[in-house]
Lab assay of single mutants.
Amino acid sequence: MSGNGNAAATAEENSPKMRVIRVGTRKSQLARIQTDSVVATLKASYPGLQFEIIAMSTTGDKILDTALSKIGEKSLFTKELEHALEKNEVDLVVHSLKDLPTVLPPGFTIGAICKRENPHDAVVFHPKFVGKTLETLPEKSVVGTSSLRRAAQLQRKFPHLEFRSIRGNLNTRLRKLDEQQEFSAIILATAGLQRMGWHNRVGQILHPEECMYAVGQGALGVEVRAKDQDILDLVGVLHDPETLLRCIAERAFLRHLEGGCSVPVAVHTAMKDGQLYLTGGVWSLDGSDSIQETMQATIHVPAQHEDGPEDDPQLVGITARNIPRGPQLAAQNLGISLANLLLSKGAKNILDVARQLNDAH
């Protein structure tokens, strides 16, 4: 009898209710805020589980004197976190989706994509230029951005401005803007500013005609071990179906173009009346040469937790077992079709030249 009692006690200790789920994140304040929001949602869904947040620095956090596009290494903000995932030191990792490459290392998958916040870019102005827009900034004003995508589009749109690289986390960039006289304004992701509670610093939100956004911008991705079915089931509740389908289309477009950090590629997606609209573009580094096109596809946005595919093969690095396969494939095909259209119009040449120029500098 006593033996059975011990077995029952052991089973209770090993039951999922007692389990601590370890969540990996970057150390920056924004990353911690984003991770806290994901953990809060998981806690609400699984009140019996405990969650421990483990923060670590990544290569991208450490190399702050070089433009991201020049470092010449993929997975700048993800490699150390993936290493911890691989060694079973954490069970899942919360990322900004735009930091996750469209091809993940073997053994990993994006197990959830959370509801997207505003994906557009924002302009934050130096205190002396508050009330201005990019259009009304004085001639030769210097605007800071760490992104080739932003610089290429904005140089084309605002030729009277000069664009220079600015690195560091959000706090560091804002301090550089406010305390030094080098920059009249800087460009940042609206979602990051909003998550930090800095709505009052948003001086201008850039519309798609001015600057399309990065693939996955404004959404959070939760990376897990691809074979860890328990954790895949656990994080599945975080999937937002519309965000998922938009981001599958965007990531398929980028992957098929073979774009990345070192080339200016941008997108804009919208879901309306059962249609998914995808606009994508590529630019030369100075913005003088560009190709942009829009395509659409009829896609039914499923309700969360309709029964999805059981075999769960990944699409552009994403596993969404609780979302039907048909809409996911339709979104992926839309991204591939748009990429093929741009490639047929000469996108590869623009991107190759951009890559060579970026590598040469």
Rank of each mutant, 00 (worst) to 15 (best):
V202K: 07
I318Y: 10
Y277C: 08
N118D: 15
Q332Y: 14
L81I: 13
L188M: 07
V142K: 10
K272V: 15
Q296K: 12
L85I: 07
S146N: 12
E210H: 01
A151R: 11
K132E: 12
R321D: 04
I54G: 05
P101I: 09
N358Y: 15
G144D: 04
R201C: 07
C261G: 05
N169V: 12
A331M: 04
A55K: 07
A303I: 15
D273R: 14
K62Q: 15
R149N: 02
F253G: 04
L285S: 05
S37P: 06
H300S: 07
L148N: 00
T109L: 04
P208R: 12
I187L: 09
C114A: 05
S69Q: 12
E210T: 07
Q180S: 10
A40N: 07
M56S: 14
F77K: 00
A270L: 02
Q304I: 04
I186S: 06
P324I: 05
R164F: 08
A152N: 07
K132L: 10
T58Q: 04
L85H: 01
R321Q: 06
V263D: 04
L338I: 03
I299C: 15
R175N: 11
E306C: 04
T109H: 10
R321P: 07
E210L: 14
M56G: 06
E139G: 10
D286N: 14
V38N: 04
L81D: 04
L276R: 03
L134R: 03
N349L: 13
S28T: 13
L188Y: 01
Q304M: 06
S288A: 13
R167A: 10
E89N: 13
V215P: 07
I33G: 07
R116P: 04
C261E: 03
L234W: 11
R26D: 00
H160G: 11
L100H: 01
W198K: 11
R251T: 06
Q296C: 02
P106C: 13
T41S: 12
L92W: 02
S165R: 13
N340R: 08
A214P: 08
A189K: 05
L238T: 03
V282F: 09
D352L: 12
N333T: 01
A270E: 14
V94R: 00
P119L: 03
A219V: 13
F129G: 08
D233N: 13
T78G: 11
A112P: 05
K62R: 07
R26I: 00
H239Q: 07
G274L: 09
M196V: 11
K70D: 10
N340Y: 11
P138Y: 07
V94G: 04
G218N: 00
V123P: 05
R175L: 09
E223Q: 02
D286H: 09
S45K: 15
I291E: 13
G274K: 08
V142D: 08
L137A: 06
A297W: 11
A331R: 01
K87P: 02
G221P: 05
S344N: 14
C247T: 06
H305V: 10
G308D: 13
V124D: 02
Q229G: 14
N200I: 13
L357Y: 10
N340I: 15
A67G: 09
F253N: 02
H207N: 05
G111F: 03
P309E: 03
M212R: 03
V267Q: 02
E89S: 13
P302Q: 05
A320T: 12
L68R: 13
H126V: 07
S96R: 03
S288Q: 14
K140P: 11
L154E: 03
G218T: 01
L68K: 13
A219L: 01
R225K: 03
D240G: 02
G317A: 04
L188E: 02
K62P: 03
K62E: 04
R164E: 14
R251M: 10
L285H: 08
E80A: 11
R325Q: 14
L334Y: 05
V130Y: 14
R195I: 15
L220T: 11
S146W: 10
I110G: 00
K348L: 14
M196T: 05
T243H: 11
E135V: 14
F163E: 07
D228G: 12
G335V: 01
L220Y: 09
K348E: 10
G287I: 05
F253P: 04
P127C: 03
L329D: 09
F253W: 04
K74L: 07
L238W: 04
E80P: 07
D91P: 04
S290K: 07
P159F: 09
S96K: 00
F163N: 14
Q194T: 04
G144E: 05
P159N: 13
G335E: 03
G346T: 08
N171T: 12
V265A: 15
A67W: 01
P309V: 15
K128M: 15
T294G: 14
A191P: 02
K227C: 01
D289T: 15
K176H: 09
Y277V: 04
P208F: 14
L49W: 07
L238E: 03
T41H: 12
R167V: 08
K227E: 15
L49Q: 12
G274I: 01
Q304H: 11
P324K: 08
T66R: 09
A226Q: 11
G317E: 00
V103E: 10
A214E: 05
R251I: 03
I110W: 02
E73N: 06
V263E: 12
L174I: 12
S344E: 13
D289F: 14
I336W: 14
T59S: 14
V202P: 15
I186A: 11
T59H: 10
D61S: 00
L174R: 08
P159Y: 06
F51G: 08
Q328H: 11
T25I: 05
Q229A: 06
P119C: 10
G221V: 05
A270T: 06
F129I: 05
I21M: 13
D230K: 09
N118M: 11
F129H: 11
F108G: 07
T59N: 06
T136I: 14
F253E: 00
S262R: 15
L81V: 08
A331G: 15
E242A: 14
Q328P: 10
P106G: 09
V130E: 15
V235H: 00
D91G: 05
G131P: 06
W198S: 09
T133Y: 08
E179R: 09
W198I: 07
F108D: 01
Q153S: 08
E209W: 01
G317Q: 01
S284A: 15
I33P: 00
L257R: 15
E139Q: 15
S37W: 13
L174A: 06
N169D: 06
D91K: 13
S290T: 04
A112H: 01
N88R: 11
E242P: 14
E139K: 15
E179C: 10
A303G: 05
K176V: 11
Q275M: 15
